[in-house]
Design a protein around this nucleic acid. Structure first.
Length: 640
RNA sequence: GCUCUGGUAGCUCAGUGGUAGAGCGCAUCCUUGGUAAGGAUGAGGCCGCGGGUUCAAUCCCCGCCCAGAGCUCCA
């Protein structure tokens, strides 16, 4: 076997022998002209590379075509270069920053005098299509540091990036037509391989994401292999817009904000409050069944307790300022844990008392910078369905398991599939590395023991402990922050918490923080989008709207409303305007059921039931059956 | 907080250096309807707030407040 040959193993097990330094493109050509033409990139070993990168050692090689999901990343990264190509053609003075592919597309940051207008984006997109039509090959070239410095002499941002590259790193540049970029790759073979691109928006972005650095102008776009995929993505953006909880919140009269009240503070209207109340009632019933006790603690507390808890040390920038009362300082609480600990410490605890599972719908206030506020999803005052489990070290695993069950039951009720992330020690943290490792291990073991899959979020823990984050997946596939379970080996120390053990000596309890919905505000905001405003009957603020065909049948219809109300169903009577108008209105308001009463129904005490979204497919049924059906639907919290 | 964009009737939005319009909604009247908009009439505006330029500002300029798209950060 000669040393200038390498052996490349293909996915089907075949081994190709090629000269050392051959590229993945050569591999594709060796396999066949069809694949050579279809190839976009390749995976060599475990590395994603382009077809121009030389291969120096024996490896497994897999050629990627537009059928492989990995090639989408490459495609989008190349699209970012094509964007920069277009921008540089039209604005030669534009400085260039970074241009990576991201989850749903790509962006490129430019250093320009003035922000881009929507018209600019349209022009750039047109230019991009010219670049694509020109089908410039992407040329990869390895260069020395000195060469690179010369090539990018006029691009200070690129020079800065170059500075950071270690001496042992390979420096490569990529050219497509007139545009040259410092870039690690990989790229598709030529610009003509990009078929379906779309520029989406422009916005400011700090250089290197650092708010102390200059603001660049970022252009977001996306690219897909297939036209259908691009169109489906754009449709999904439209769908997301339609579901926007701020818009539905107003249209359905669920909540509002008021600048006189202040930024990031939610006014729950009667209908929104009903949705929240149902969730709270459900959850209270759920947790009492799961062995929790419910407490209430004050909204403001003396600063002393936040000194003990470490919040003034670690969370101060998120806390509202102090208010002075008779020489003492008070603050709105940013978390509920200190209050719960104080309840725990109101008496001496025995191991026989543990575990104590203490819950509260606790309203907390956090100072959030104005720019991050967003509808109900990011606010300054919110109510957490907070709970703390105080237990012995031996009980932790069991308690975590119980929490997994609780979360599973709760999320099932709302129809959310979910994934789990385990977050580890962040930079700014209380406690020792050993305590953290122990806690992380315990959580991981508990999940593994039940065969629950999870991802690791390195450094994503809260400052006081590692956590499990449950990510909800909504009806259109978006991820939302869901329940969290956090282990805390720190607060018990800071508060010097104890319980008396079997040995008649004091011991330190373990503390678990957990939320299910997280914040009522964020959860309801998310639910509005998940259900697109069409709440399942048990949550719907108005469950049944009864419509007499004409005012003549108002008495009969009114009797039905009375029956429904008596049974505990939220029902209303609407008799103005035409029947068609009222049906349209009820559909628009996404009321789950309409009950139409006319001559026929009045005479035999029935009702024509029209279900939301079902159009003319209605069912005439006995009124008692109708009431029972609704009640059962509410009782079982049926979805959709 | 930063960059940009916006703020006109309850909502969605037009509009102009000479104090303002549409559709929906709302009110009243007519209509008494059979499954997604019946008709007529009418009310409703500190044109976000403060200052400046101007004979004159909703419009131009400055500051502030609020909202939106992002950046950074989070339940």
């Amino acid at each position: 076997m000669s040393s200038d040959q390498i052996h490349l193993t293909l996915p089907n097990g075949d081994i190709l022998e090629l000269p050392r330094g051959s590229t993945a493109g050569d591999v594709a050509r060796a396999i066949g002209p069809g694949l050579a033409k279809a190839a976009l990139a390749a995976v060599v070993g475990d590395r994603l590379v382009d077809l121009m990168t030389p291969i120096e050692v024996d490896a497994d090689v897999r050629i990627l075509t537009d059928k492989d999901p990995e090639s989408l990343d490459v495609l989008r990264h190349s699209a970012a270069h094509v964007l920069a190509t277009a921008v540089r053609e039209m604005r030669p003075a534009a400085g260039i920053g970074f241009g990576p592919s991201i989850e749903e597309g790509f962006y490129y940051d430019f250093d320009v005098e003035a922000p881009f207008t929507p018209e600019d984006l349209a022009d750039f997109e047109a230019k991009m299509n010219e670049v694509i039509d020109a089908d410039y090959p992407f040329e990869r070239r390895q260069v020395t540091r000195e060469e690179a410095q010369e090539l990018f002499a006029d691009d200070p941002l690129k020079l800065e990036r170059l500075e950071e590259l270690g001496d042992d790193e390979i420096i490569t540049v990529y050219r497509d037509g007139p545009f040259l970029d410092l870039c690690r790759g990989p790229h598709v073979p030529s610009t003509g391989r990009l078929k379906h691109i779309k520029l989406l928006s422009g916005a400011g972005a700090y250089w290197r994401g650092d708010e102390k650095r200059q603001m660049l102008q970022r252009i977001y776009g996306t690219a897909f292999v297939k036209k259908d995929d691009l169109e489906a993505y754009l449709r999904r953006l439209e769908e997301a817009k339609k579901r926007d909880h701020r818009r539905l919140g107003r249209e359905l009269d669920l909540f509002s904000t008021d600048e006189r009240v202040g930024q990031g503070l939610i006014l729950w209207h009667a209908k929104g409050a009903l949705v929240r109340m149902e969730i709270e009632n459900y959850e209270r019933e759920l947790i009492l069944r799961h062995g929790y006790q419910v407490v209430y603690t004050p909204h403001i507390m003396s600063e002393k307790i936040f000194e003990i808890s470490g919040h003034l040390e670690n969370f101060k920038e998120n806390m509202f300022g102090a208010m002075e009362v008779e020489g003492a300082f008070f603050r709105p609480k940013p978390m509920n844990c200190p209050g719960h600990i104080a309840v725990y410490q109101s008496q001496q605890r025995s191991y026989r008392d543990l575990p104590i599972r203490m819950a509260e719908f606790g309203t907390v206030y956090r100072y959030e910078r104005s720019g991050v506020l967003h509808g109900m999803l990011r606010v300054r005052g919110f109510t957490q369905d907070d709970a703390h489990v105080f237990c012995t070290p031996e009980q932790v695993t069991k308690e975590v398991e119980r929490l997994l069950d609780l979360v599973d039951e709760m999320l099932g009720t709302f129809g959310y599939p979910y994934t789990i992330e385990l977050s580890t020690m962040p930079e700014k943290a209380l406690g020792t590395k050993e305590e953290w490792d122990e806690a992380v291990q315990l959580l991981a073991d508990t999940l593994s023991a039940r065969n629950v899959p999870f991802d690791i979020d390195e450094g994503g823990g809260a400052f006081y402990g590692p956590k499990l984050d449950f990510k909800l997946i909504d009806a259109i596939g978006r991820k939302w922050q869901g329940p969290t379970v956090q282990l805390d080996f720190n607060l018990p120390d800071r508060f010097d918490m104890s319980y008396i053990g079997e040995d008649n000596a004091p011991h330190r309890p373990v503390m678990l923080h957990r939320v299910l919905v997280g914040s009522m505000e964020r959860f309801v905001g998310g639910l509005i989008e998940h259900y697109a405003g069409a709440f399942p009957t048990w949550l719907a603020p108005e469950q049944v709207r009864v419509l007499p065909v004409s005012e003549q049948w108002e008495r009969s219809a009114g009797a039905l409303v009375a029956d429904l109300k008596l049974a505990g169903v939220r029902a209303t009577l609407e008799s103005r305007e035409t029947l068609g108008y009222r049906i349209r209105e009820a559909e628009t308001l996404k009321i789950p059921y309409m009950g139409v009463v006319g001559e026929r129904e009045a005479s035999d005490r029935s009702v024509a039931v029209r279900k939301r979204g079902a159009g003319k497919k209605q069912e005439v049924m006995d009124r008692q059956l109708f009431v029972d059906m609704i009640l059962e639907e509410i009782r079982s919290r049926t979805l959709g």
